[in-house]
Write a protein that binds this DNA or RNA. Structure first.
Lengths: 271, 271
DNA sequence: AGACTGCGTTCCGTCGAGCGCAACACGCGG
DNA sequence: CCGCGTGTTGCGCTCGACGGAACGCAGTCT
């Protein structure tokens, strides 16, 4: 039952593009597919969505109208295109409020932000990129433009390195695409990157200076669950001029300590 | 703005407690209903969800399984209960990145935070409570515990007053439940509160000193869209001792100016 | 202007997808 | 052990979701 009956050869190339699809309740599947398309494109019309899903225009419309009734999507104007709506944010608020990872990590992250004066982030691995779960602003006015929910490349960030360091060889290969170059300091050699990961594993922390963006420095340490797996990563990041070499040692000590504290609260080292 | 709602007079057997429901594609409607229930309860079992929606267990299971395939829900353990998942957060990231309100407001909010030294929030009206969309921390270490996605009572906050001031009588009645008392300064009289709203409308800003919490002061101004409707509210809040009467004038000037600037960027006053 | 092409939206008849039923596998407590 | 509670799975019947086609409206080309 793998292939969906695509009987219409209207001429349009039937490209399932990307998504799970094909598993579960058909109409719900399609509706969620719409959300994913909108997340990717930012904004789409009914016709566009219909082509993307390989369904009739009217079908796409009915689905999107249902989503709209629940405020998960909204249209830019009457008779306009569609985009993701506020309902998503409401759900997201309820999600983070309940995730015990965020729950446990938040007070510690806040203290870390106060101690270092820089921005603290918590990220998890999600489909070959880093998903930022939470962010606590530093005391300085100069803040990074990241935001919860953003996708960040794994090989050019301290968080990414930490998260990858917890994977075995097979999973690593799957998660690691090609290593894009962002700055002259980005590590792009595969062998070289594996060495870096070994170093991270050994040291228990990761550093990235100017690797994603010139002038941006970040350090990160792993958060482990009761089984000892790396489930998340906690980082401190800020402008490189505020995080010079001689200050990094101090910051590293704080980050590693904070991450270990969260790990303990999640049950690591108990039993 | 045709309402899709009233085509049929509810043949439902059991009261679906709360939610939109009854409009659009049935199975999608139910699936989204599940998300809303999970957002409310935090965690539920299949059977529980089934009775909540008034459907058969197996139906609820199939729906929740589809949601799980898209990572919008996850189960606490194999054969365990269900809760909202990371997929929601991914969608939320894509949402905030594209919502032009947040997009436009963020740099201005940040500047306002720098100028005042206090925390800036942006909130919208969402089902008879305030939904906080964005937050920029002030320069001081002492920060409020709020977070994006939280629901806050409308009648005891400056943001809430501003948002309510944009409604007509009918909508106001619908949005306003009973006026709970939080502190001795909370306005609880209905007539009194309407006078306060009239003042807010006239002045173009709202103030709340010790009304939600003793020691917490906040001021807010409306953000308008191209049609002139109040779509959001921007506030500055901090400890009352840092925001004494004689400083409020200055802060108010800044807030009103910032909110007006955002409104302009959203097309207000243009043509 | 007028024809034309694209959009989002609506109506309707049909047929297969999704529903409820019932049976299943498992965990718990009496 | 049995009963009762989960979450999970096949299976036929039926009703709800689907695609086709037409509509109203906005631009755009001729």
């Amino acid at each position: 039952m793998a292939d969906v009956a695509d009987l219409q050869d209207e001429g349009e190339k039937v490209a399932p593009s990307s998504a799970v699809m094909g598993a579960g309740v058909q109409s719900v599947d399609r509706a969620l597919g719409i959300l994913e398309v909108l997340a990717r494109t930012g904004e789409s019309g009914v016709t566009e969505l219909a082509v993307e899903l390989g369904v009739h225009k009217s079908t796409a419309f009915r689905l999107v109208a249902t989503l709209e009734a629940h405020r998960l999507v909204e249209q830019t104007s009457d008779r306009g295109r569609y985009r993701l709506g506020m309902g998503i944010l409401r759900l997201a608020g309820a999600t983070t409020a309940r995730l015990d990872l965020v729950q446990e990590a938040r007070p510690i992250a806040r203290q870390l932000a106060v101690d270092t004066g820089e921005t603290v982030n918590i990220a998890v691995l999600s489909e070959s990129s880093a998903l930022y779960l939470d962010q606590v602003a530093g005391t300085s006015a100069l803040q990074p433009h990241n935001w919860v929910g953003q996708h960040i490349p794994l090989h050019a960030t301290s968080n990414g390195k930490v998260l990858l360091s917890g994977l075995d060889e097979a999973a690593l290969d799957a998660a690691l695409g090609k290593l894009a170059t962002y700055t002259p300091h980005t590590i792009t050699g595969r062998a070289e990157f594996r060495e870096e990961l070994a170093r991270v594993r050994e040291q228990g922390y990761a550093v990235a200076v100017d690797e994603l963006e010139i002038g941006l420095t970040a350090v990160a340490a792993p958060i482990r669950n009761a089984h000892g797996d790396v489930v998340a990563s906690m980082s401190v990041s800020g402008p490189s001029f505020r995080l010079p070499e001689d200050r990094l040692d101090e910051v590293l000590r704080l980050v590693v300590g904070a991450a270990r504290e969260v790990s303990h609260r999640l049950g690591w080292g108990h039993r």
